[in-house]
Structures are given as C-alpha cells and as structure tokens.
Amino acid sequence: MIELENVAYSYGGGELLSDISLKLAPGSFHFLTGPSGAGKTTLMKLCYGALLPTAGHVRLFGADVRGLGRDDIAVVRRRVGVVHQDVQFLDHLSVAENVALPLSVSGRHEEAAGGDLGELMSWVGLTNHVNALPPELSGGERQRAALARAVIMSPDVVLADEPTGNVDWDMSQRLLRLLIELNKMGKTVLIATHDLGLIRATKAHVQARVLRIANRKIQLAGADL
C-alpha cells in the first residue's frame, strides 16, 4: 500500500526525519506516536504525497511518488482518506455536501446523492446535522464529519492525524470504534496520536502496532504499552 524506504525530510536547515523505513501492509492498523514537533504530521503528509521526501523513496500503491504527476496524485488521494488535525471544509456547503465532496470531484455525483450517504451520516452520528454548515459544528462533530468524508470513497487507506484531538473521552472512543470497524472491513489505518490511553483502549479490540518517532527515527514500540 504505502511504503517508505530510507526516507529523510528536512525543513529549511534542519533534518526532521531521517532514514525512515516503513511499510503499511493491507489491512494493518498502526499508531504513530511521539512528542509534538517530532514529525508525525510530516510523516503523514509524506504518506499521501503532500510532501516529497528530500531523500529516499516513497511508494504509493507501488508507484514512486516522484514519478507521479499532479493528476496521478489526485487519483491516489481518492484511494487514501485523510483526516487532518485541523479539519477544513468548504464552509459555504452543507455538511452532507462536504462529506460527499470526494464523490463529486471524481465525477460520481449520482452516488453523492444516494442512500449510502445517509447511512454514513448516521454511522458517524451526524444525521441531525446533514444540512448544517461546517462552521456551526462543534470540534467533535467536525472530526466525525471529516472522518465520514475520508471514508466515503471506500479508500484503501485511512490516515488520521490526531483525530481525537478536540473531543472528549467518550467521543474519542466512538471515533476509534469507527476506525476499528473500518480496519475490520479490510482498510489500512494509520493514526497519529499522543494519547496513550487511546492506544491501550484500541489494543483490546484490534492488533495494532505502535510506531514511535524519536530522534528523527522511527521505532517499533513494544509491548510496554
């Protein structure tokens, strides 16, 4: 699915990540943790072609990201659902239209209006907010709407950057259950979080591997969690 090989990334002067090798196999569930500023978000962006590595190779679905044109990247994004830390929407469109946006931009309008959307909205508990505008939603509702938008194309991979950052414990559990359910449906999931409680809670339900970024490198955190 997504493969990083000896990847390094530097911003301006300093090197943020170096010599990172990582392979997200189909159906795997990974957590990505580490202190803030360690490069979790950067690593996520490398995984969906928003950033190009300064060294090494990133392969998305078997193709080297450097060889992909802009339209190829767009097509890759239809197979990768991304939930950003600061989720952004088209604020002038309703929540339902925002959730269906990936379908609209890939020319699948008829599905955007279909019954699957209603099912998805009830799955993330936003049935009552279908016609609301994104700025009217609370932090947790925005996160759930973003998750719904990330999965509406039935992507192969779901990347979520601090998806529980703005929500209380109950809500974060609920979001997590959604992600676990997706994983059980065969999706590859990668969640960046610094919430160790969340990781522990997950491990009870699914076999998750924990990756930790420390000193610019990535390590597989063991059973200590």
Binding site: D71, A74, R77, V82, Q88, L90, D91, V105, S106
Partner: peptide
C-alpha cells in the same frame, strides 16, 4: 485558498 486546499485533499484534479 481553503477551498482549493480542501479540493486537492479530497482528490480533485487541477483541471476540475
């Protein structure tokens, strides 16, 4: 800018 970023994120091509 936000509209364009969101569209790019969800897989819209430049032409779109």
């Amino acid at each position: 800018g936000q509209v364009i970023r969101v569209l790019r994120l969800v897989g819209a091509t430049d032409d779109y």
